[in-house]
């Protein structure tokens, strides 16, 4: 019997092998996906957003020698609302991370985050510092990590190609940004600055820890802000 299950099965229809190439039996998504992904992968617009040393290499990547325009990525948008990609190019500090999360929340979906360099991925050489966030992935979902301190422009392009490959894997049918049940999904809570950086998702944990280590002076603990010790 020449009829076999080729994998090209749609519903109950079983298509003979010799016809599989001639008959359209896939879902619409299968046809649309390549077109959809091709157009998206070749027009990834990053946010004009430089943090530290890696930003210099990012600019070098965008300028004449490495020329991101070859990938359709040269349009650095100053506003997050027009961009698809956020290149976290440099050390993320506690003072800056609320802004970064807010910017990310403002980006329209589908949106991607590329963590460029050691600092953005995991704190880098400054990890031990008191004002440094040990990896932006603690606050945002990161799609591609590019190691290096700093990654050379070619390494960054390599990361961008990896991102393109990731986009190629996505399907319009299963894309989470089109069939959202919860309208607040994808909104990340903006961390706030207290005596240290406060991740609002960790409030319960902070309360538990506070119960474990009570302050010596209970009056001080309930104060909104610790007093600055200058005699005045």
């Amino acid at each position: 019997m020449a009829v076999a299950n080729t994998g090209a099965v749609n519903g109950d229809v079983v298509v003979p092998d010799e016809l599989a190439n001639n008959v359209f039996i896939g879902t619409i998504a299968k046809v649309l996906d390549p077109i959809y992904n091709w157009s998206r992968r070749n027009s990834i617009w990053p946010v004009t957003f430089g943090l530290a040393c890696c930003a210099i290499e990012m600019i070098c990547t965008a300028s004449s020698r490495y020329d991101l325009a070859r990938f359709g990525m040269e349009v650095f948008r100053a506003t997050p609302r027009q961009s698809d990609l956020m290149i976290i190019s440099g050390t993320v500090t506690k003072k800056m991370v609320p802004t970064i999360v807010r910017l990310y929340n403002q980006m329209p979906e589908p949106r991607y985050v590329l963590s460029m360099g050691a600092c953005a991925s995991g704190g880098g050489p400054f990890k031990e510092g008191y004002n440094v966030v040990d990896g932006i992935d603690k606050f945002l979902p990161v799609d591609v990590y590019v190691p290096g301190c700093p990654p050379t422009p070619q390494a960054l392009i390599n990361g961008l190609i990896a991102l393109q490959e990731k986009i190629d894997q996505q399907s319009i049918a299963t894309a989470p940004w089109y069939n959202k049940k919860d309208p607040t999904a994808g909104i990340y809570p903006v961390p706030v600055l207290g005596p240290d950086l406060v991740d609002l998702r960790q409030l319960d944990l902070i309360r538990r820890e506070a119960a474990k280590h009570p302050a010596e002076d209970p009056a001080r603990a309930t104060e909104a802000e610790p007093q600055t010790a200058g005699p005045q």
Binding site: P195, L197, D199, R207, A215, A224, P226
Partner: peptide
């Protein structure tokens, strides 16, 4: 906290320190 943070002993987030 699994993060690079520390809080003063007994510090409780109240909502108005932000």
């Amino acid at each position: 906290y699994g993060k690079n943070v520390q809080y003063p002993a007994g510090w409780l987030p109240t909502g108005d320190e932000y």
